[in-house]
């Protein structure tokens, strides 16, 4: 971690509440209730007293990472590395998905679960693939996410994967009463799982259904744990917190493509730096007609859809 902490905030889309308001919001009584509700009763004193990730000093971050890593070691019996790579300067991530190529095979859905340490039982998936009628076009009222034919694509249908759109004006961030979720400088909307109180306002606010809640203790066996993690990304989550796609922050801040991009057999998924004119995402924006999902809501996604025909 560099001495850039506490991380400066990105323009205008953060909650107006200061981060310390969580302490006020969590008056003792409320905290007790929250603990009962979210099952956070097992919080260690250190964890309960931990500051919001953005406000931590370098030393505090190191202490917390060491604590988490030893907890994971005890729980899963293997070494889990919790990274804290900050946003790279001069990088804002963008994503584009080619609706004329996607065949709905769901390789991305399952690669995402594996990479990001989602609960397997019940399985939490960050990508939903919608099957739609070519006749109807993009119509969320006529979309089926449970399709299961022997082979895809099915005649007369097309497929629209939906995941976090990494909005520039994320409604989820606005409604969080405790500042546990925010937009990083590289445009990734993240959650501090140690700060989240599990109120799920963000889930209600998200127009894309992109946030997911751990109702129970996430069912993740040691063999399933991906040990390459990031504090703000795929580290194993506790019960009672909200989670979402982070463009695989643990990979992309090291120059790798997100797992969904890497696995896609059709090449429908394009990813890169919006500030780099040579990136795949910029080539798509320059040469193809793109649209944003629910653009009328003015959430301003950095996730685009296009027809590459």
């Amino acid at each position: 971690m560099t001495d850039q902490l506490p991380m400066p905030l990105q323009t205008g889309c953060e909650p107006s509440s200061s981060c310390d308001s969580r302490r006020e919001f969590l008056g003792t009584a409320v905290a007790a209730v929250a603990m009962a509700l979210t099952g956070c009763g097992k919080l260690s004193k250190e964890e309960f007293l931990q500051h919001n990730f953005r406000e931590l000093s370098k030393d505090e971050v190191q202490t917390i990472i060491a604590r988490l890593e030893s907890e994971y070691k005890a729980k899963y019996g293997k070494t889990v590395k919790v990274g804290t790579e900050p946003a790279m300067p001069g990088v804002i991530f963008g994503y584009a998905l080619d609706l004329s190529r996607c065949i709905g095979c769901r390789r991305c859905v399952h690669a995402c679960v594996k990479e990001n340490n989602q609960s397997r039982n019940p399985e939490i998936q960050w990508i939903r693939v919608l099957e739609m009628d070519k006749e109807e076009g993009v119509n969320l009222q006529h979309a089926d996410q449970y399709y299961d034919p022997a082979e895809v694509p099915r005649e007369g249908h097309f497929y629209m994967p939906v995941q976090c759109q990494q909005c520039k004006k994320p409604p989820c961030v606005k409604v969080c009463p405790v500042g546990a979720t925010w937009r990083e400088k590289d445009g990734i909307v993240v959650v501090d799982y140690n700060w989240c109180i599990g109120c799920r306002y963000c889930m209600a606010a998200c127009p894309y259904g992109a946030r997911h809640f751990n109702w129970g203790e996430p069912g993740l066996t040691p063999a399933e744990v991906n040990p390459d993690t990031h504090y703000l990304g795929n580290r194993p989550r506790p019960k009672g917190v909200v989670e979402k796609c982070t463009f695989c922050v643990q990979r992309t801040r090291k120059g790798l493509y997100p797992a969904c991009v890497e696995i896609c057999p059709t090449g429908s998924r394009k990813f890169g730096n919006l500030l780099d004119a040579k990136s795949e995402i910029r080539q798509v924006l320059e040469h193809k007609r793109v649209f944003k999902l629910k653009e009328d809501l003015n959430t301003q996604p950095n996730f685009f859809y296009f027809y590459g025909v």
Binding site: L99, S100, K134, E135, E136, G137, V138, N139, L140, F158, K278, L285, E286, H287, K288, R289, V290, F291, K292, L293, K294, E295, D296, F304, Y307, V309
Partner: peptide
């Protein structure tokens, strides 16, 4: 794929500069 289904779904197309294809970049 024609564009009418997209519009009928109330989605606005973001029209970017017409794709004038230059020769592949060297």
């Amino acid at each position: 794929m024609n564009t009418s289904p997209i519009q009928s779904a109330g989605l606005t197309l973001l029209l970017l500069a017409a794709p004038a294809f230059a020769s592949p970049p060297e």
